[in-house]
Computed example of a mutant assay.
Amino acid sequence: MTLFQQLLLGSLYLGICLAVEAGLLVFCVHILRHRLDALKRIWRFWRMAAVLAVAIGLIVFAHTVQVWIWASAVIMAGAIGDWNTAVYFSLATYTTLGYGDVVLGEGMRIFAAFGAVTGLFAFGISTAFLVAALREVFALDRENGR
């Protein structure tokens, strides 16, 4: 794969993954907002636990989907021949752990690096989302005089 192709395809997959991340976080906001009235009536501990469970569950799902997207990309590109290795490589790259025991050829290295960039963006967005969600929970407590 040429440099231009790697940049183009890497950017495409990065965009797809960030759209998945954004879409699932918007869905999470939708779920939490529609359940806000019910959350106002329950104890603080359970309210915080419910918000965290929903938010963390959807965030983990979003990251898992993105790892599978990258695994599919390296399989379709022919860079890795089996799903087990592709998912392992994608997970190690996405989390920027990068053990180095599975390495792609020169024609795919830049493309694979986009998987790491995707993970960096997604983890940053997820962290900011969790902080914002908890801020809302704490604001509810202040409104209720707790």
Score class of each variant (00 low, 15 high):
Phe45Leu: 12
Ile75Gln: 07
Phe89Gly: 00
Ala49Asp: 13
Phe4Arg: 07
Asp141Phe: 00
Ile42Lys: 08
Arg41Gln: 13
Asn84Gln: 07
Ala112Pro: 00
Trp68Ser: 03
Met108Asn: 10
Val20Gln: 04
Cys17Ser: 07
Val60Asn: 02
Ile110Phe: 09
Val103Asp: 09
Gln5Phe: 14
Leu58Tyr: 04
Leu3Trp: 09
Gln5Lys: 13
Val26Glu: 10
Ile69His: 01
Arg41Gly: 09
Val51Leu: 10
Val60Tyr: 01
Leu134Ala: 09
Gly10Cys: 06
Leu97His: 05
Thr85Val: 01
Glu106Ile: 08
Gly105His: 04
Val117Leu: 15
Leu7Asn: 06
Asp101Asn: 10
Phe111Pro: 03
Val54Gln: 05
Val26Arg: 09
Arg47Pro: 02
Tyr13Glu: 07
Met1Cys: 09
Cys28Thr: 15
Phe111Arg: 09
Val29Gly: 03
Leu104Asp: 13
Tyr13Cys: 09
Ser11Val: 13
Thr118Trp: 00
Ile31Gln: 08
Ala53Pro: 01
Ile110Lys: 09
Val103Glu: 11
Val51Tyr: 08
His34Ser: 08
Ala112Gly: 05
Leu91His: 12
Gly145Thr: 00
Arg47Lys: 11
Phe45Pro: 04
Leu39Thr: 00
Ala22Gln: 15
Trp83Gly: 02
Val131Gln: 06
Val20Pro: 10
Ala132Gln: 04
Arg41Thr: 12
Leu97Ala: 06
Val74Ser: 05
Arg135Met: 05
Trp83Leu: 14
Gly98Lys: 14
Arg35His: 12
Tyr94Lys: 09
Asp101Ser: 14
Gly100Met: 15
Val54His: 07
Phe61Thr: 14
Gly98Asn: 15
Ala139Glu: 11
Cys28Trp: 04
Ala133Ser: 12
Leu39Gln: 07
Val74Gly: 02
Phe4Ser: 11
Ile75Thr: 05
Asn84Ile: 03
Thr95Gln: 07
Ala133His: 04
Phe89Thr: 00
Ile75Asp: 01
Arg47Tyr: 05
Val26Asn: 03
Ala92Asp: 11
Arg142Phe: 03
Phe129Thr: 07
Ile59Lys: 04
Met1Arg: 05
Leu8Arg: 06
Asp82Cys: 00
Ser11Gln: 06
Val102Asp: 00
Thr118Phe: 03
Ile56Ser: 10
Tyr99Glu: 13
Leu120Phe: 15
Phe114Cys: 05
Leu36Ser: 11
Asn84Phe: 07
Cys28Glu: 13
Thr95Phe: 11
Tyr88Pro: 01
Leu39Val: 00
Phe138Ser: 10
Gly145Ser: 02
Leu52Ser: 15
Leu14Lys: 10
Ala71Tyr: 01
Leu140Gln: 12
Asp37Met: 12
Ala77Asn: 07
Gln66Ala: 02
Ala22Val: 14
Arg47Gln: 08
His30Asp: 09
Arg35Gln: 11
Tyr13Lys: 07
Gly81His: 04
Val67Ile: 15
Leu140Met: 14
Thr127Asp: 02
Ala139Pro: 02
Gln66Val: 11
Phe129Ser: 08
Asp37Lys: 09
His63Gln: 12
Leu130Asp: 01
Ala50Lys: 11
Glu136Asn: 10
Gly57Met: 11
Ile31Asn: 01
Arg142Asp: 11
Leu134Gln: 06
Ala19Met: 13
Ala133Lys: 08
